[in-house]
Simulated assay, not measured.
Amino acid sequence: MAGDSVRVDTWVWGVRLAKTRSQATAACRAGHVRVNGATAKASQAVRLGDEVRVRRNGFDTIYRVAGLPVRRGSAAEAAQHFDDLTPPPPPRVERPAEIVRDRGAGRPTKRERRDIDRLRGRGDAG
């Protein structure tokens, strides 16, 4: 292997995006790792400047390869080998305050139930 590239599974493991090399390889096999827009096999080489997308917890994270780690080091060392290009998540929508009914007030009326549904974001159901 040349000194200007490294396997993508080794890179993902070396920069601490996967806990083990086996997990990095499995992520590649499952299609969760993309290099420059194309699904990557575990043995695919990555070079400086390549864009690597890793699907973690249901979201894509985007990294630019800034270094090629020789071994898995500390988190501070790993952070030097990539630039995080992931856009910030969209702002969370504030939920309205919870509706509190007095204990013993009985079941809500049809009008109260519709108001509750509207406040919880369920639209005008029913």
Rank of each mutant, 00 (worst) to 15 (best):
G49E: 11
R101W: 14
W11S: 05
H32T: 01
I99P: 02
V65E: 03
S74L: 10
A2W: 00
K110H: 01
G73C: 05
A125R: 14
V35N: 04
R7W: 00
Q23G: 01
R34A: 10
T39G: 05
S5A: 10
G73V: 07
A45C: 07
A45I: 00
A75C: 10
R34D: 05
V70N: 10
T20Q: 08
G126A: 12
V65Y: 03
R7T: 05
F82A: 03
V52R: 03
V8S: 06
D9C: 01
Q44H: 11
A75G: 09
A26K: 08
R107C: 08
T109G: 12
G49A: 10
Y63E: 04
T10W: 08
Q44R: 14
E77S: 14
D102H: 08
P90Y: 11
T20D: 09
R113E: 01
G58H: 04
N36L: 02
L85H: 11
R7L: 11
A79I: 04
L68S: 00
V15G: 02
A75L: 11
N36P: 04
R107Q: 07
P90C: 11
A38H: 06
W13K: 01
R7E: 00
A75P: 02
A26W: 03
T20F: 02
Q80H: 06
R103T: 09
Y63S: 02
A24N: 02
R53W: 09
A75N: 00
T61A: 15
D83S: 14
R55H: 03
K110C: 03
A78M: 07
G14N: 04
A18T: 09
Q44I: 01
R122F: 12
V8L: 02
A75R: 05
G73T: 12
V6C: 08
N57S: 14
P90S: 08
T25R: 11
Y63G: 05
A30H: 03
R95M: 12
S74N: 12
D117A: 13
H32L: 14
D102K: 15
D84M: 11
E51C: 04
V6M: 15
L68A: 03
D83Y: 08
Q80E: 15
L48T: 09
E51V: 14
R16N: 12
R7V: 06
R21D: 06
K41N: 06
G106R: 12
G37Y: 07
G37L: 04
V33P: 00
R118I: 15
P88W: 03
V35C: 04
G3D: 13
A76G: 08
V46N: 00
E94T: 06
A125T: 06
Q23K: 02
E98L: 10
R53I: 04
E98N: 10
D84Y: 05
E77P: 01
A30K: 11
R16V: 07
H32P: 02
Y63H: 05
